[in-house]
Nucleic acid binder design. Sequence first.
DNA 1: AACGCCACCAACCGCCTCGAG
DNA 2: TCTCGAGGCGGTTGGTGGCGT
Length: 314
Amino acid sequence: MGRPPCCDKIGIKKGPWTPEEDIILVSYIQEHGPGNWRLVPSNTGLMRCSKSCRLRWTNYLRPGIKRGNFTDHEEKMIIHLQALLGNRWAAIASYLPQRTDNDIKNYWNTHLKKKLKKLQSEEGDDEGNNYEKGNSCSQLKGQWERRLQTDIHMAKQALCEALSLDKPTQIFPETKLPSTFSHPTSPNKTSSLYASSTENIARLLDNWMKKSPNKTETNCSMSNMVTTGSSSSEGTQSTVTCTQDQFDSLWSFKYERSQSVSAEENTNLVESKPNVETQVPLMLLENWLFEDGAPQCNEDLMNMSLEETADGLF
DNA sequence: AACGCCACCAACCGCCTCGAG
DNA sequence: TCTCGAGGCGGTTGGTGGCGT
């Protein structure tokens, strides 16, 4: 028998959140900050389990979340990253700071899978196989490269924090950096983010009162408001993935390069994976970190072939 | 108008990881 | 070293609304 569900206690409410619950949760987090989710239900009186509170916050109420339609760029980026990283939605979401992993996952399952399937069937061997190659090559690339991508990302984070950069959230989405909320060197940022939460409350109240029938429109305006609130207050919404150039460079990743890697190489690499944080070519990371719009650098990282990377690492 | 089908997405479930004790 | 619990993550489910018949 598996473990009992965390929320099967009597009296624990399930299902959609009401605006009242949202307001209570946002108000509490505004006051105490996210974290310590175990205490949230008891301190707020919400009849929800801690997990449900955390998910509601991270997937819906958290400031800076962009909702509504995915742009063409975002779409392509997701396709590319999925081919590269597999179904590691959290990792993919870290490259799309305004989107949650849940959103991306849903969008992939409902839109992109079908779209790609259709594309494959329409274009026959050429395009379809390219994608297939992309998928298969990503598998050939193996676990080590997926970990490498994650490690590079984490190395950036560590380096950024170590250097106490002024604008860490430019590069690392707050989604994956809960510490941002209580960053000791940037108290104003915390308040600005919570200001966005206040806007969320306003929006919730607004929607609640209006009960607008047009869900999509509501979501879009909401996202605009939240996004504007965050970016205008601190200018923190510029990210490594948001510019056209950067996206294009990312998208220009060539599957063919990866194809040249044999399964044998992968096996060896997996077995001897070193401490990436200390051995990834530092100049690339530095450039990536310090140049706000560093498309070329981004491209370098993404285009880094396995052989080159391995040479640098071993 | 009533019904069925389908798409979408918020929320849940359960496994995994990691840090504290 | 081991245990336990909080939080993170990916897969899945269920409610809802739109559309066609």
